[in-house]
């Protein structure tokens, strides 16, 4: 037990030592993304806005009647799902993509995975600007509950780090993971009520999604706060936090177990 404790504190102090590296990697990812583009950082706001407009035009004819203020409904779901999807798709390559560096110097490897997820989170914050624009334009209701949104993002961030760590280590040993994961996220997107109301589905599917789709926990909470202007239910909060912690533990466990063998495969 003592040994485990000292091991944990060793990990934490190492993470603390490399915190500036994490910061620099995140700034690097964001800087390089828009370097030399004419509108630069503005794209982080414009891009989701444009996609939202397209999706609203496409889907509003299908589901509009059941959903009040469809653009905001859609945007709430889409922002969170895109963050999860983009950041984990980046994280899956965080070890294999940094092979040349990892072969030549000692750095805690999880830093690269966390950096990718964190860059995604920064992008999400830019996109929140776009959400506010949409809410203003559509005269949506603003309530104090909306200010609790960071609480949901923390859960989602922790969940994504866990998932990212798991995927990154899996992709080192099994390169097919990246392709399988592509299919998984597509299915996942359609099984998450992003652009349709959950009630539209058959009852058994609704109960499946409500119990087993983690993205539903986070999007549901986020919509409660921002779109409906109310406190989310206890169960969904509990499910969201529990899933986040469980995913983080799975990710860390699988990563720690295999990290010393990475070098032999990258």
């Amino acid at each position: 037990m003592k040994e485990e404790e000292s091991k944990l504190s060793q990990y934490l102090s190492e993470f603390w030592k490399y915190r500036d590296l994490l910061k620099l990697l995140v700034t690097k990812n964001i800087k390089l993304k828009y370097r030399r583009s004419f509108l630069g950082y503005l794209w982080s706001v414009l891009n989701p806005l444009m996609i939202m407009v397209v999706m609203t035009i496409v889907f509003s004819t299908m589901f509009n009647r059941n959903i009040e203020n469809f653009p905001v409904y859609l945007f709430c779901g889409q922002l969170l799902f895109n963050f999860m999807s983009n950041s984990t798709h980046q994280a899956i390559f965080s070890i294999t993509g940094n092979a040349s560096l990892l072969k030549k110097t000692y750095v805690p490897k999880y830093i690269f995975t966390i950096a990718k997820i964190t860059s995604g989170l920064v992008d999400l914050f830019f996109s929140l600007g776009a959400l506010i624009i949409v809410m203003l334009v559509t005269h949506a209701r603003f309530t104090w509950y909306a200010l609790l949104f960071p609480f949901v993002l923390v859960q989602l961030y922790v969940f994504c780090i866990g998932l990212g760590l798991f995927l990154a280590q899996a992709n080192v040993f099994f390169k097919d993971s990246q392709f399988i994961y592509n299919a998984v996220t597509t299915a996942w997107m359609y099984l998450t009520p992003i652009f349709y109301p959950l009630e539209m589905l058959p009852a058994w599917l609704i109960s499946c999604i409500k119990h087993f789709n983690p993205m539903y926990f986070y999007i549901g909470q986020f919509r409660d706060l921002v779109y409906y202007g109310r406190m989310p239910g206890h169960l969904i909060i509990l499910a969201g936090c529990g899933t986040a912690v469980a995913m983080l533990l799975i990710g860390m466990w699988s990563f720690m177990r295999s990290k010393d063998r990475f070098i032999l495969y990258i």
Binding site: D20, L21, L24, K28, S100, L101
Partner: peptide
């Protein structure tokens, strides 16, 4: 210069590489 990023400037790379070696930004 393991960890040098070709797209970044030398100034940015000095900080990046320093942090790769475990130094703080300060």
């Amino acid at each position: 210069g393991a960890g040098f990023d070709q797209e970044m400037t030398a100034r940015e790379n000095i900080f990046l590489n320093g942090c790769v070696l475990g130094h703080s930004e300060k």
